[in-house]
Design a protein around this nucleic acid. Structure first.
Lengths: 224, 224
DNA sequence: GACTTAGCCAAACAGTTGTTTCAAACAGAC
DNA sequence: GTCTGTTTGAAACAACTGTTTGGCTAAGTC
């Protein structure tokens, strides 16, 4: 083992690559810049990861494995039976908390690195896309399903899914369209209490939406 | 004027550049590929536009000027006075129609070029961002404002804006996150009647959301 | 001490990319 | 026809980029 570098070079490369890939994308981030930011030699990236693409995939796998672990640990959902016993107020509080977490991760502040990586992956999907969907998106949506189904039992499975997408969509909007929204609002960044105010709006808006769908379903019986 | 090309070379370059910039982004699209697809010489791009970046900006300005004209012509909104005289059902039909138009443009099928360009511009904003916001996003949102305000007069201006964002956000979600949603759903493309079904869901969901906000506002008086 | 191995570095390599150059081709004015 | 300004084409250019090479150091093994 060499002791030349004070920190593990591989780790520093991963960190630098994460930031640059998130900031400028796969094509925009240059191996030389990554190496420079990591305080490593140009050849180090290829030595440790084999190729630029392999480094990129490793960045994605590392980050989304980590955030999955974090979410599982921090915001563990009660099991289905416990969920069924919860009061309406408790369920709503649970949904509200998960919404706030999503906003914190995706919208910030600070602007999250996961959101940036996902956004770029949606522009130019790589081999890591299935991993991101399965490790990050699917578990989150499954848990939202459970909560929403407990809150509005009259909704069909497809309706619950669409409602989950509607709620996540509102959150993603402020992340993905940040430059446009900021210019539209005439600001240069989302303020301090912005996400909290946003959480309140999205929560109320979404609950109203689901309520309407649930009650409409109860009232009128429609074909498909 | 040369007649060598059967079509104006400049126009063909613009078309080819649009497709490639939308498909692979500014960095991903190569001038050589654009020229080849346009059936033009490599030097033609620089001759007609000066540089790759100028070509990119011209692509954006052209497209968003065109779509603005199209929207103004096709989906002209009644003026404020006429709007005030409309019945609730008429206003709702108006909102529903605009929603369907947004879905057609952004989600497709076919997957729209405007959505792709916007998405990439949000990843790496260029000098054309202000143009896009002012020519495409702002006019659309202003008109949604008018309709929503007429539908729910008790909402504040800030609330109406947030509701507009909530509705647009749901639409954008299916465009921006398309690869993830498709994988989540286990399909390889949105089906035929998908956007129509989506329009119905988003419309009901959003109306429920606004209703809840409006009625909550009427019932309880809250501090900020 | 001799040998092996992992980590790191400077340099070089081969391919690509945006841009420029300069001559040829062309249309229209005369 | 000649002349002029515009458009096109082939080639070259200079800079950049991902990757490879060969050698160096330091630690571990015998």
């Amino acid at each position: 083992m060499a002791t030349r570098g004070d920190r593990r070079t591989r780790q520093r490369l991963l960190g630098a690559a994460s930031e640059l890939f998130a900031a400028t994308g796969f094509h925009g981030a240059k191996v030389r810049d990554i190496a420079r930011r990591a305080g490593a030699n140009l050849a180090a990236a290829n030595y440790h990861f084999g190729s630029k693409e392999a480094l990129y995939l490793e960045v994605l796998r590392t980050h989304f494995a980590e955030i999955r672990a974090r979410l599982s640990a921090e915001a563990r959902l009660p099991d289905k039976a416990a969920l069924a016993r919860m009061s309406r107020a408790q369920l709503e509080a649970l949904a509200r908390m998960r919404l706030q977490t999503m906003l914190d991760i995706l919208v910030g502040p600070p602007p999250g690195i996961y959101g940036r990586l996902i956004q770029r992956e949606m522009c130019d999907p790589s081999a890591a896309l299935p991993h991101i969907v399965d490790e990050f998106i699917r578990p989150n949506l499954e848990e939202m399903r459970l909560v929403f189904r407990a809150l509005y039992p009259s909704l069909t499975a497809a309706e619950v899914d669409r409602c989950s997408f509607s709620m996540v969509g509102q959150v993603m909007f402020y992340h993905v369209m940040r430059p446009a929204v900021l210019r539209f609002l005439g600001r240069d960044e989302y303020g301090r209490g912005f996400t909290r105010q946003l959480a309140e709006h999205i929560f109320d808006f979404s609950l109203g939406g689901m309520e309407r769908l649930a009650s409409r379903r109860r009232r009128v019986r429609r074909a498909s």
